[in-house]
Simulated scan of single mutants.
Amino acid sequence: MTTRRALNAPTLAEIRKWPATVSVADAARALGVSKSHLHALIRSDESPVKVLSFRSAYRVVTADLVNVLSGEREAA
């Protein structure tokens, strides 16, 4: 069985201390998916978390990431 720690995934307590927005790579690690998979979800408008777009750069809203991971909001 693979644990979140084995995947180098941050704990929810660690994520709560992150800045207001984080990179797609950090968000993907927290969600347990690859960066390319999360980018594909973002491009197809199917991201489970809120994403801010700055031209070609994306930032994931940490508060929404916390809500999804804590079960306060269902992933889309």
Rank of each mutant, 00 (worst) to 15 (best):
W18A: 08
S23V: 14
D26A: 14
R5D: 09
I42H: 02
A30N: 07
T21N: 15
L52E: 14
T3E: 09
W18P: 04
H39F: 08
D45I: 07
L12M: 10
D26N: 11
P48G: 01
R16Q: 13
A13K: 06
R43S: 06
V66W: 14
L7D: 10
L38D: 00
R43W: 03
W18T: 01
R4P: 09
V68T: 08
V68Y: 00
W18K: 05
A27C: 12
T62M: 15
A75D: 03
L52H: 11
N8K: 15
S44R: 13
A76H: 13
V22H: 10
A27E: 04
L12C: 06
R59L: 07
V61D: 03
N67P: 03
K50A: 02
A76V: 07
L65G: 03
R29C: 08
L52V: 11
V51Q: 02
T11L: 10
G71S: 11
G32T: 02
S34K: 10
A63I: 05
A57L: 15
A9Q: 12
H37M: 15
A76F: 09
T2S: 13
V66F: 15
L69T: 12
R5P: 03
T62N: 05
E46N: 04
S53W: 02
V24Q: 03
V66S: 13
I15G: 03
V60T: 06
R16T: 12
S23P: 04
M1P: 14
R5F: 08
L52Q: 14
R55N: 09
R4V: 07
T11R: 15
A27I: 12
L65Q: 05
I15A: 11
D26L: 13
L7Q: 11
S34E: 13
T2Y: 07
R73F: 11
A6F: 05
L38I: 00
L52K: 02
L41W: 01
K50S: 07
L31W: 00
L41I: 01
H37K: 14
A13G: 05
K50G: 00
S44F: 10
S70T: 14
A75H: 08
P19A: 10
V49F: 00
A27M: 04
S56C: 08
A27D: 02
A63K: 05
T62H: 11
V24I: 07
I42M: 03
